[in-house]
Each structure stands twice: as C-alpha cells, then as structure tokens.
Design a protein around this nucleic acid. Structure first.
Lengths: 218, 218
DNA sequence: TTTAATATTTAGGCTTGTCTAAAAATAAAA
DNA sequence: TTTTATTTTTAGACAAGCCTAAATATTAAA
C-alpha cells in the first residue's frame, strides 16, 4: 500500500519521464511538486527501497515496472474521475483538476471498475489525455490541434488547449464538446480559418479557435 | 480547514452525542475510533482550542455549534456518496461504508452541491439514515422496522438492519429495495408474519424478514 | 585544468497524529 | 470514610513528510 504522498511522487515522476527519458532529476520533481529538493531526495530514497523506482545518487531516477503500474493506475483514476465530473456533474473542463487530484487517491479497485463501467469505458479525459487501461498501458495519441488538420480530414474532439470560461462558453453555444466529430470542409491558408462540419451544422471558425481544440484523427 | 483526522473525531463525537447527551467520554471516543485514550485526550484538547468543542478535564466533551456544523457536513457527504455508490454504481448496501469513509473527506463545496443535484436531492442514505441538509440540520426519522407496522400502515423502505449477502439477494429477488413503498395488508399476531404489498405484488414475509427492514412511515 | 556556479545530498529540526508507561483524578467498594 | 479499581491525563517517544542550513558532487566557465 502506498501513501498519498508516495502516490503523488510516482505520478509526477511518471509524467516527467516523458520529457526526461534518461532519468528524472531531483530538482525537476521538486519544481513540479512545489516542494524542496531535499524532501525529494528523502522520498526518492524511500521509494527506491520499496523498489518502485531505481535511483543513483546525483544521477536521477526512473520508475521500475511496478512503479509505472502504480503511477498509471493513479492517473487512470484521476482521468476517470475527471470524466465523471464533466459528463455527469456538469463541471467545466477546467474546473475538475483539483477535485480529481483528491479523488484519485480513493482506495478501492471495485469502485474504479464500476465507475469505468458507469462512464461506459471512456478512452479520453476531458482534456483529451488518454486514460490508461486496467493493466496500466497508456496508448498516447498523436494529439493534434484542429488547426493542423487538412481539408476533408476528420476527427473527434478530445479536449482544449487553453480553457477560459469564455472559450468554453463559445464552444458550448456551438455544440462543440468532447467526443464530438468534426470534419474540415474548407481551409483558408492565408489566415488558417476554416469551415467545419459539427453534427448537423456547418461553422466558420478562426485559426485562434482551431488552434485551441485537440483532435483525435480518425 | 480541518484535517482528515480532525474531521473523523468531530464526526465520531457527533454520533456519540446521541447516546451520551451530557458529555462524551474519552474512552467512548477511543473505543469507537479504535485508538488509545491518550490520543483522544491530545486531539480533544486541540479541538477545544479551535473552539469546535467544549472540554473540561475528566468531564468529557460536547461539540459547539460550529463543531456540529462541521460534523454534520461530513456526515452529509458520507451519506450522499453512499447513495451515489448504491444508486449509480450498483453497489450493495453493505459494501459502501468503507469507500464513503474515504470520499467524505474530499474538499469541494461545489462537488457536493452538484452530487446532491445529480442524485435528485435524496433524504436518506441506503441504510435509512437521514442526510443532513446544507445548513447541517438533521431531521432524525422515527426509524421503525417493518415488523412494528400495523395493518394498513404504509411506508418507504429506507434500509436494512443486518445486511448479509443472502438477505440482500432475497430482497432483490422480491423487488424490495430502498425507496420502495410497502403496505401492510395483513398481520398474524402469533408469529408476526405479514402479507405486504410491494409494487404490483403481494408477498408473504416472516417476522425475521420484517424485523430487518427499516421503514419510514408515510 | 583549475575555479566558479549549480545541483544534490546529508544532518538536524519541526508538526501531526499516534503510541506506551507513569501519574493523577474520579468512581466504586469495603 | 478509607481503600481499591477504573478512567483520564501527562510525559516522553516515534514515524511520516516536510523544512533550513551546511556539506558534497557535478557541471560549466575561465
């Protein structure tokens, strides 16, 4: 069993490994967790003894297989709860992070199995990030913004890049939301604006909007 | 802000006050929380300084108004989550306590407002206990067992007394569940067995069953 | 390559919430 | 009412997880 603090370290290191593949430095962890490097050293040494990560003094750290599994599971829970908060409790995409940060530590395998079922096995959270499966496998998507799509390409909206309330309201009004299928009908190259198909409607959107929407190409 | 441990003490004392109205003893709290009396003394003194309870050495403790409000809010959250687990995630009544024990400490007013909304403002948890309102008022019901009802009385099933899996399955099969309206059609006084109306069906049940069902008289 | 700057670790300390053992107060029994 | 038993409190200690300050490695610059 891992404590809340331990789970948070594992999760953070998991994320940082994407960026620092050869080893995550003490200070990188400290920065991300808003804590002091000395605290990180303490915890990393403790986690190394528990064999969830490998650590060489001054050389940084990397998760072991079991460490990765634990971290992926925490992330899975976090993202499933985010889906719940948005899809069932009508929170906005940008309001759910702090709450999910707490919910991700609730201990119950069965709870997550049933929550996943209740949400109909979602594959992405409201920010468009993939939800790890039960085995801890994450299938990272080639996350593109709508602005990167070409004419006639289509995909599913899986999230937003920057999410101000005004922007979310703009999207709501136009029925653009997570899971919605979008097709590029026309693209203007001088300003990147485009005509898109969303549900039954055709919309004209600026490049600024298109650049803020994450799309999963299908 | 109160820590997880502090919230648990307040909640426990709140419950114990129903039984020990003139003051809750250190050992009663220690018993209920499965901790040592010396630990209780420490915490109670700390909480007294925070003015959420009044405490006189050797004389026990009672919650202040603000202490009661905090405790009621934790209980509100606990019971709302229990409703969620049973009504939405299909847990059995007897499986939800430990999970709710964790969920009750999630910090977000907005979350509880929306959860309450999502569950359509339930008044009772799956064990038939009343859910405190947002102001912390609890309206305790005169919780009777079905066996205490007389002929022609009717009420809503709000919970079970003892909940073995077999018993819950017995109930499921007969469509007896929380929120279900039950009417006593006939009652045999020599053994307490009764004929009841449940939904469209009439059922004959023994006193043993009737004694295990909590009913809210309407 | 030697020096300076930066990163990391160690040492020691603090807070929270728990514990054991001993002291003190209260309650019960003789 | 005095003694005994029980309850409660105090004192001192410990683990987790954090901190600051000092010591040690590593990296970058001269």
């Amino acid at each position: 069993m891992f404590s809340l603090a331990e789970e948070n370290y594992l999760k953070t290191i998991f994320h940082l490994e994407q960026e620092y593949r050869s080893g995550v430095s003490t200070s990188a962890i400290a920065d991300k967790m808003d804590t002091k490097p000395s605290s990180v050293t303490d915890m990393v040494q403790k986690l190394a003894e528990k064999e969830v990560l490998s650590y060489k003094k001054y050389k940084g750290t990397l998760l072991t297989k079991s460490g990765k599994a634990i971290a992926a599971n925490v992330i899975r829970k976090h993202r499933l709860w985010e889906v719940f908060l948005v899809a069932k409790l009508n929170f906005h995409w940008d309001e759910v992070h702090d709450i999910a940060e707490q919910l991700e530590h609730i201990q119950s395998e069965e709870l997550i199995i049933r929550l996943d079922e209740f949400l109909e096995h979602p594959n992405f959270d409201p920010h468009g990030d993939p939800i790890p499966d039960e085995q801890g496998n994450v299938y990272p998507t080639e996350k593109k913004t709508l602005s990167e799509l070409e004419k006639n390409q289509q995909g599913i909206c899986v999230g937003v890049k920057e999410s101000s309330t005004e922007f979310l309201q703009y999207l709501d009004k136009r029925k653009i939301g997570i899971g919605v299928k979008i097709t590029v009908l026309r693209k203007e190259y001088f300003d990147g604006s485009m005509m898109i198909q969303v549900g039954g409607n055709q919309l004209f959107i600026s490049n600024k909007i298109a650049d803020n929407l994450y799309i999963n190409i299908i």
